[in-house]
Write a protein that binds this DNA or RNA. Structure first.
Length: 905
RNA sequence: GCCGCUGUGGUGAAAUGGUAAACACAGCAGACUUAAAAUCUGCUGGGAUAACAUCCCUUGUCGGUUCGAGUCCGACCAGCGGCACCA
C-alpha cells in the first residue's frame, strides 16, 4: 500500500495544487488607490506580521503561530468586504549571515538570498495569503536606499521647543554656527562611553545588552569611550510615553515601554564645592571654584543630605580632588574601569567608594558634607552626581553604614516603622521650614524655595538613553555620510543608494576600526573627503518596513503619498492637492487634511486612531527594541510631514512562545525542536495551521504536542469524509452518495448558524481555539446525520476556509463537480463571509435550572416563550425543589428567564 | 527588591456574576476486522453507597461582597516574565 493511500485524506495532492493556483492567479494581489482594479468603496484593513530574519535554520514552529493568526484575520476581513493589506518580507541584515560568511568565505548576500529562498518556499507551503508583489528585503538596494534617505532626514532635523522634529534648515536660517547645529541634530556624533563587545567586534545599543552580555551570542560587553553615531530618541521620551495611551496594546507591553523610558520627577540642586573643611563656611563660599548639580526625586530630604557621591568617571573629579587623595582615587578608578558591566552589577551587593577630599555646601543649612566617588552612582543618569540621604535611601544607607558616615533623620514614618532606611512618604522633621509637611507638600515647597534662590529647580529625568546607532560591521546599511576637515555632512540624495563596497575580507578588524576601512577605494569619496566607515544596526531596516509595504515598488519615494494615506488612515485624498515638497504637511494630527472619501462607511469617520497598522502580531521580545525604535522614527517622519499618523501600530498582539513537548524552551541542545516542514509532510499545512491555533489562546505560552496535531488532523479528515468516500480496494476517493441537494434539518441548521456566528465573533477576538472547537461541534453534528445537505456544507466550508484554506477550496470544487449551483464559483477566499440567521439559533424549548439556596436541585425543559410567572410556578411545583425547601416558605425567588430559578428559604 | 502576568481534570484547555470542566489529547470498554491500523460508539474530577437512583466535596490558600463567585473585592502562597545600585 502506498504512503498516499494510508493518509486519512489526500492533502499532499491538493495542497500544492491550490498554492500554485493562488500564485498563478494572483489570488491575494492587493491593488493600491489609483490601480485599475482598486475598489474605493471598501474600507481598508492592514494586518502585519513581524517579518522574520531569514536564518539558515529555516522556519521554526513559532513563526507559523503568529502568521497563521494574521492569515486567518486577513482572509476573514477580505471575505467581510475589506481591502486587506497582508504582506511579508525579510529583515535580512544582521550578524548571523555575516558570521556565516566569515566562516565559509561566502558573501553574505549569497547566504541571505539562499535563506530567503528557503523561507519563502516554506511560507508558500503553508498557504499564507500574502501579496507577494509587495515583498520587501531590507538588504535590497531599492529598499535600503530609503533607509539611508530616512537617516538623512534624521540627520537634517532637530527638535524644537514644542518637542517636534523640524528641518535643520530652520536653524541654519537662524544663523547658528556649525557646531551649534551639529549639536542639535537628531543623528549626531558622540564621544561617550559605549557598550563595546570585543568578541563581536562591534558596539551595541543598551537595548542589545542583557545582564552585561551581548543579546546575540552572550559575549561580555565592556564600556569604553568611542566616537559613535547616536540618534536622539531621548528628545521623544515624553511623547513615547504619552502617546501609548491611544493604542490598543497589551498593558504589559505599554508598561514595559514606560519602565524602559523610565520617567521620574524630581529636582536639580546645585551645591558649591570647597577643597577642604578647614575654611569657615563663609570664606568657603566665596572661595568655591566649582559647583556640582545633583538630581534627586526627594528634594524634601535635602536637610538629611550628609554626604555627596559623584560617579567615578565624572570629569569634575580631577578638578575638586584633594592632592592627598589623588592616588587613592586613581586606584579606585582603575578598579572600576577594569570591571565589565556584568561585574559591576554582579558585585553590586558590596558598596565601594573613595573620599575625594573635597566638600560640598548643603544650600539649606550651609553644612559642609564630604564628597565621595562610588560606582553605585552612574555617569549616564541624571547629572552623574547625587546628594546622599542615608536615612531615607537604601543604597545611601548601606554606603553610610559601611563608611561610617552620619545618618540624619528628616522624615517621620508612620507609627511602628523604623526611620532608618525608611524610603516612603512621611512627615518632614529636622528640616527647618519644611517641618510638619507631608512629603508631597514638602517637595513642592523646597522646589519653590530652590528656584527662588536660584539653587535649583524641578526637573524630569528619563532612564532612556540616546540610541547608539553605529556598528563596526560589514553586513549593514552604510551611512550616507562623508567626512571632510574633521566635519561630517550628508551625501546628496541623488547618490542613494550608497552600496557597501565589495569586500573579500569582511571580518571585524578586532579593533574598533570598522571592516569597511579595508575598502580603500570606496572609502575615498573625493580628494579631500572620506566616507563614514560604520554601518547601521540591524534595527534600522525594520523601523519603517511597514510603510514600504504600502507601496513596495515605488522607486521615486519611500512610499507614495496616496498609498501611505490610504493604508495608514483609510482615507483617500484628492490627488490634485498633494504636493511633493518636503515641507508638505500631511497629517500633523490635523483632521482637515485627512478628508474621508464619501464612499466610506460612516463608522470610519469616527475619531481617527493614532496608529496606522490595524493589527500587528509578533513576539514580546521586541517590546523595547523594534517597537520603541519604530515608534521613534515614525514620529520624526510624522513631524516632518512624511506620514499621516503619529503612531505606526494601532493594535498589537503578542503571540505566546511555543515550548517543546517537554515543556522546555525549544533548543537544538535539548533536542526538542519541532520542524514545521516535518509536520507539513506528515499531516499537511492545514493541520499545522489549525493545530497552532487550537493549542490554546494566541497570547499564551504553551507546549507543543504531536498528539494534538493528530487530533486536528483527524478533525480535518472527518470534514473530508463529510463530502468524500474512499473505495475500499483502490483507495480512490469519490464524492459521497450521502451528499445531496436537500435543505438542512432544523438541528443541523442551528449548528451551522451557531458556527457562523461564533467563528465570526471569535476571529475578531483572536480566540481561534474556541472557533475551532465550535467547528468541531458542527462537524460532529454533520457526521451524525445520514444525509449531508450539500449547500449547508458549502456554507460550512466558507467558515472553515480562513483556517484550513486548502481543504476548504478542494472540497468546494469537489462539490461543484456534481452540484455546480450549490458550490462557490472561483476561490472561496473571494466569496463573502456567510451571515447567520438569528431565528435559526432559537430553540422551541430551553432547559431551565432550579436552585434552592443557590444549589442545583432540578432541571426542566420549558417552552422558550414561558413567562417568568410560569417558570416560577413550575419551580415551586417541582417535587425535588419542595424536598429541599423542607416545607419552609420561600423568602425570595430569583427568576432568570430561559436560564434558572433560585429559591431562597 | 520593584513592576507585571498566570494558577481550573492525567494533559492542552472552555465557561456575558447564573448547570464548572465545552472541544481536543491520553486512558478504558465495545463494534468492524482472521489480525492490526484506520474508523465508529460509549465511559472517563474526587468521595459516600447494594445501586446506572441519590447525596457530599472540588477552579492555589484564607476571608469578604452577592439570592448565586472560577469570574468581583482584600490578604497571602506558588510559578513565569520584565526591570534592577536609575538617586
Amino acid at each position: 500500500m502506498s504512503e498516499q493511500q494510508r493518509k486519512a485524506f489526500p492533502f499532499s495532492e491538493f495542497e500544492p495544487k491550490w498554492q500554485d493556483e493562488w500564485e498563478a492567479k494572483k489570488a491575494f494581489h492587493t491593488p493600491n488607490p489609483g490601480d485599475a482594479d482598486f475598489d474605493a468603496t471598501k474600507p481598508k484593513y492592514f494586518v502585519l506580521d513581524m517579518f522574520p530574519y531569514p536564518s539558515g535554520a529555516g522556519l521554526h514552529v513559532g513563526h507559523p503561530e503568529g502568521y497563521t493568526a494574521t492569515d486567518i484575520i486577513g482572509r476573514f476581513k477580505k471575505m467581510s468586504g475589506f481591502n486587506v493589506l497582508h504582506p511579508m518580507g525579510w529583515d535580512a541584515f544582521g550578524l548571523p549571515a555575516e558570521q556565516y560568511a566569515i566562516k565559509t568565505g561566502q558573501h553574505p548576500r549569497i547566504t541571505t538570498e539562499q535563506n530567503i529562498e528557503g523561507f519563502r518556499g516554506q511560507l508558500k507551503r503553508l498557504g499564507f495569503a500574502y501579496d507577494w508583489d509587495r515583498e520587501v528585503n531590507t538588504t535590497d538596494p531599492g529598499y535600503f536606499k530609503w533607509t539611508q534617505w530616512i537617516f538623512l532626514k534624521l540627520y537634517n532635523a532637530y527638535v524644537n521647543e514644542e518637542g517636534k522634529a523640524r528641518p535643520i534648515s530652520e536653524l541654519e536660517a537662524q544663523g547658528l554656527s556649525r557646531a551649534e547645529i551639529d549639536s542639535r541634530r537628531l543623528a549626531y556624533i558622540s564621544e561617550a562611553p559605549v557598550n563595546w563587545c570585543p568578541e563581536l567586534g562591534t558596539v551595541l545599543a543598551n537595548e542589545e545588552v542583557v545582564d552585561g552580555k551581548s543579546e546575540v551570542g552572550g559575549f561580555a560587553v565592556e564600556r569604553r569611550p568611542m566616537r559613535q553615531w547616536m540618534l536622539r530618541i531621548t528628545a521623544f521620551a515624553q511623547r513615547l510615553i504619552d502617546e501609548l495611551d491611544g493604542l490598543d496594546w497589551p498593558e504589559s507591553i505599554r508598561l514595559l515601554q514606560r519602565n524602559w523610558i523610565g520617567r521620574s520627577e524630581g529636582a536639580h540642586v546645585t551645591f558649591k564645592v570647597v577643597q577642604s573643611s578647614g575654611l569657615p563656611s563663609e570664606a568657603a563660599e566665596t572661595a568655591a571654584p566649582h559647583s556640582i548639580t545633583v538630581f534627586t526625586t526627594r528634594p524634601d530630604t535635602l536637610f538629611g543630605a550628609t554626604y555627596m557621591v559623584i560617579a567615578p568617571e565624572h570629569s569634575l573629579v580631577d578638578q575638586i580632588a584633594a592632592p592627598e587623595q589623588a592616588a587613592a582615587i586613581a586606584a579606585y578608578r582603575r578598579v572600576v574601569g577594569s570591571k565589565s558591566d556584568l561585574e559591576r552589577t554582579e558585585l553590586a551587593k558590596e558598596k565601594t567608594g573613595v573620599f575625594t577630599g573635597a566638600y560640598a555646601i548643603n544650600p539649606v543649612n550651609n553644612e559642609q558634607i564630604p564628597i565621595w566617588i562610588a560606582d553605585y552612582v552612574m555617569m549616564g543618569y541624571g547629572t552623574g552626581a547625587i546628594m546622599a540621604v542615608p536615612a531615607h535611601d537604601t543604597r545611601d544607607f548601606e554606603f553610610a553604614t559601611k563608611f561610617d558616615l552620619p545618618v540624619k533623620q528628616v522624615v517621620q514614618p508612620p507609627a511602628g516603622k523604623d526611620w532608618q532606611g525608611y524610603t516612603d512618604d512621611g512627615i518632614a522633621i529636622h528640616s527647618g521650614f519644611l517641618d510638619g509637611l507631608p512629603t508631597a507638600e514638602a517637595k513642592k515647597k523646597i522646589a519653590a524655595w530652590l528656584e527662588e534662590k536660584g539653587l535649583g529647580k524641578g526637573t524630569t529625568n528619563f532612564k532612556l538613553r540616546d540610541w547608539l546607532f553605529s556598528r563596526q560591521r560589514y553586513w549593514g546599511e552604510p551611512f550616507p555620510i562623508v567626512w571632510e576637515d574633521g566635519h561630517h555632512h550628508g551625501i546628496p540624495e541623488s547618490e542613494l543608494p550608497l552600496l557597501p563596497p565589495t569586500l573579500e575580507d569582511f571580518r571585524p578588524t578586532g579593533t574598533p576600526e570598522p571592516p569597511l576601512s579595508k575598502a580603500t577605494d570606496w572609502v575615498r569619496y573625493s580628494d579631500t573627503a572620506t566616507r563614514e566607515l560604520n554601518t547601521m544596526p540591524q534595527w534600522a531596516g525594520s523601523c519603517w518596513y511597514y510603510l514600504r509595504y504600502c507601496d513596495a515598488q515605488n522607486s521615486d519615494r519611500f512610499v507614495g503619498i496616496e498609498a501611505e494615506r490610504y493604508w495608514m488612515t483609510g482615507s483617500l485624498g484628492d490627488n490634485q492637492t498633494i504636493g511633493q515638497s518636503d515641507n508638505q504637511t500631511i497629517g500633523q494630527g490635523d483632521n482637515q487634511t485627512v478628508s474621508l472619501s464619501p464612499h466610506l462607511p460612516v463608522s470610519l469617520s469616527s475619531p481617527p486612531k493614532p496608529g496606522g497598522v490595524d493589527l500587528y502580531v509578533g513576539g514580546t521580545e521586541h517590546a523595547v527594541l523594534h517597537l520603541l525604535y519604530a515608534r521613534f522614527w515614525h514620529k520624526v517622519l510624522f513631524d516632518l510631514g512624511y506620514v499621516s499618523t503619529p503612531e505606526p501600530f494601532q493594535r498589537l498582539v503578542n503571540q505566546g512562545l511555543i515550548m517543546g513537548e517537554d515543556g522546555q524552551k525549544m533548543s537544538k541542545s535539548r533536542g526538542n525542536v519541532v520542524n514545521p516542514d516535518d509536520v507539513v509532510k506528515e499531516y499537511g499545512a492545514d493541520a499545522l495551521r489549525l493545530y497552532e491555533m487550537f493549542m490554546g489562546p494566541l497570547e499564551q505560552v504553551k507546549p507543543w504536542s504531536m498528539k494534538g496535531v493528530e487530533g486536528v488532523y483527524r478533525f480535518l479528515a472527518r470534514v473530508w469524509r463529510l463530502v468524500m468516500v474512499q473505495h475500499e480496494e483502490s483507495g480512490v476517493w469519490s464524492l459521497s452518495p450521502a451528499l445531496q441537494d436537500v435543505p438542512a434539518n432544523k438541528q443541523l441548521t442551528k449548528a451551522l448558524h451557531e458556527t457562523i456566528k461564533k467563528c465570526g465573533e471569535d476571529i475578531e477576538k483572536l480566540s481561534f481555539n474556541t472557533a475551532i472547537s465550535q467547528m468541531m461541534v458542527c462537524t460532529n453534528a454533520f457526521t451524525g446525520a445520514e444525509v449531508k445537505p450539500a449547500s449547508a456544507i458549502v456554507t460550512f466550508l466558507k467558515v472553515l476556509s480562513p483556517f484550513a484554506p486548502h481543504l476548504a477550496e478542494e472540497l468546494n470544487t469537489r462539490i461543484a463537480s456534481q452540484f455546480p449551483d450549490l458550490a462557490v464559483k472561483g476561490f472561496l477566499s473571494d466569496t463573502v463571509w456567510p451571515t447567520y440567521d438569528p431565528a435559526a439559533l432559537i430553540e422551541d424549548e430551553v432547559e431551565v435550572v432550579f436552585q434552592v439556596n443557590g444549589k442545583l436541585r432540578d432541571k426542566v425543559r420549558v417552552p422558550i416563550a414561558a413567562s417568568k410567572e410560569e417558570i416560577q410556578a413550575l419551580a415551586l411545583a417541582s417535587t425535588r425543589v419542595q424536598e429541599f425547601m423542607e416545607g419552609k416558605p420561600a423568602k425570595k425567588v430569583i427568576v432568570v428567564p430561559g436560564k434558572l430559578v433560585n429559591i431562597v428559604v
